[in-house]
Design a protein around this nucleic acid. Structure first.
Lengths: 238, 238
DNA sequence: GTATTCCGGTGATTCTAATCACTCTGAAAT
DNA sequence: ATTTCAGAGTGATTAGAATCACCGGAATAC
């Protein structure tokens, strides 16, 4: 099989190596088969857009591989990134179930494969597969949870350094820790970090330099090494 | 029937006058009956707390009447109000379906009646009532939607006046409009408004006075009258 | 092999809004 | 009746970060 963007292609959900570890994919075989009948798989290059905020929701995208940036923008061009979606997530879910417009814009930031399911087919599928409906509710709950987490970093901080510290700790929570150190493969630009914490690109640059000077972290290429989570937490609780 | 806190008591969902207009209450009669068997109704005074953030989720509260403040706080006491829940909403839903801890604190700000349903009973009910599960998904979608809306007012604004203008417009969207004017019964204190838009009490006081001077709104007792939505929108797009 | 664009780093300047420290008011409590 | 308290209004001060305006390097395009 050709792999257009240097991407591992998953042809069939039934034999997908990740099926078990993913909330929405780990369904009974009958459900997965029913799902396969209504999905359209496609590969997307970096920079592609799955959907734009304000568009009436056409349906959902099940992200098989790659990473997607979910953001919202104001009229004057300022952008706020809500989160970075990982494989296994169902994108466009809230708007699709409520029958409204997508509230966010979904941009591919790492070559991705996604399965599209039209709104009507998806809702019918949910009606006939009670277990899947419950998964959907769970996924929605988790999405909500992460939104709250971001609100906390942006809304409860007194300063930009507090926001950045909170952001790094959130981010670190999904990484492996060894000997007290956490290595974070930072795939975001300073600009993007700024858009995640509601700050400016320059302050992110300055704060990261500052944190490094204060021995809070090391920067090796594009990976951050957190020297001590405790010190970052001290900044948060300042 | 005694009404402890000057509250209209709804004894039976089947004859509730609001049943049809509320997303989760407007279920088939069989579902409502099944629901009635597992709910515990109670009345709460102003100031009471339904649940606190961080508590393992015990179950959901269906708000029959009254209004509830949903907020989160940081260690140093700073508070961020996510939204004010209205009758008909199901509180504690995300945490209950995902089986995690409540992510917010729910405080009664207007005497309320609520029906409590324990987590296990609720999940079993959902499994056996597919239509209710879909309603739950929809409710979750709407909750998410409102969270995004708040993120936008806090995260995309360049100034405090922009935040306040965005907040007022959001708030006005749920009010009746007549002759271009919108009358808002503002039941929140300046402090609470500040906690909703991530600002300080003093700036809210100053900005409201400022808006009044600029003829953007009138203040009569505890109701705000928006003179022109267009001018507020101009501030947002400044 | 050159051009171009994107990203990161840095200084100088400006200004907003947080913070502190009061007063004043009306409502509720005693 | 008077005390108490929560909420609102206001001034002065100040720190923090946005903004503007650059430069340099690295990666990509052509």
């Amino acid at each position: 099989m050709r792999t257009p963007y240097g991407l591992e292609i998953i042809e069939n959900c039934l034999v997908c190596p990740h099926r078990e570890e993913r909330l929405f994919c780990n369904l009974p075989e009958s459900s997965v088969k029913a799902l396969a009948a209504i999905t359209a798989s496609a590969a997307y290059p970096k920079g592609a857009t799955l959907f734009v905020e304000g568009q009436p929701a056409r349906g959902v995208f099940i992200l098989c591989s790659g990473r997607v940036k979910l953001s919202t923008s104001s009229a004057d061009g300022k952008t706020l990134i809500l989160r970075i979606a990982e494989p296994g997530e169902v994108l466009g879910l809230p708007a699709t179930v409520t029958g409204t417009s997508y509230e966010l814009t979904a941009d591919i930031i790492e070559p991705a494969q996604a399965n599209f399911i039209g709104r009507n087919e998806f809702l019918n599928f949910l009606r006939e597969n009670g277990d899947a409906a419950l998964r959907v509710a769970q996924q929605l709950g988790e999405t909500y949870h992460s939104a709250i987490a971001e609100m906390r970093t942006i809304g409860l901080s007194h300063s930009a350094s507090e926001k950045l510290a909170r952001f790094l700790l959130e981010w670190a929570a999904n990484c492996t820790e060894e000997r007290g150190q956490v290595r974070i493969k930072m795939t975001l630009t300073h600009e993007e970090i700024a858009q995640m914490i509601g700050s400016s690109r320059e302050t992110v640059t300055r704060l990261l330099a500052d944190f490094r000077k204060k021995q809070l972290l090391q920067i090796v290429g594009s990976t951050l090494i957190l020297r001590s989570k405790a010190d970052l937490e001290a900044i948060v609780n300042h």
